[in-house]
């Protein structure tokens, strides 16, 4: 079975690193990006099965990256999980309109991230 591909986007190197290690230890091929702009570019290139992204980042925020992902044919259906310390900053309805699969609040649990990714991918597979 081919490894599932995950893209982890966060400007905090330690956060990217910990999520990446957790996912790699559990059978994912992980690519990392330091902001939304780099994430958007890499998503177009590697077409990951799942994207885990921060909300507030320099250059391009997580939300702006998702908006752009949804505009591109190759990336419009990639499930996204958002890690954020500012969940309240998401406007009503944005979760649905941008098809954000789940929000996880910081401080988060890597176990919880993995579990949410597995559930999201399972749901996507059924659909």
């Amino acid at each position: 079975m081919a490894h599932r591909k995950a893209l982890v986007v966060d400007d905090e190197i330690h956060i990217v690193q910990v999520v990446a290690i957790k996912l790699r230890n559990n059978g994912f091929d992980v690519t990392t990006a330091e902001n939304g702009a780099v994430g958007l570019e890499l998503a177009g290139e590697i077409c990951p099965d799942i994207i885990v992204t921060d909300f507030q980042m320099p250059v391009m925020t997580g939300l702006e990256m998702i908006e752009n992902l949804r505009k591109q044919e190759s990336t419009k259906d990639i499930p996204v999980i958002m890690l954020t310390a500012r969940g309240f900053a998401i406007e009503e309805g944005q979760k649905e309109s941008l098809k954000i699969s789940a929000f996880l609040s910081k401080p988060f649990s890597p176990r919880e991230v993995l579990k949410t990714i597995e559930e999201t991918l399972d749901t996507a597979a059924v659909i």
Binding site: E12, K106, P107
Partner: peptide
């Protein structure tokens, strides 16, 4: 505050 706390918690 939550960013370093998130790292501490996760590691």
């Amino acid at each position: 505050l939550k960013t370093p706390l998130a790292s501490i918690n996760a590691y």
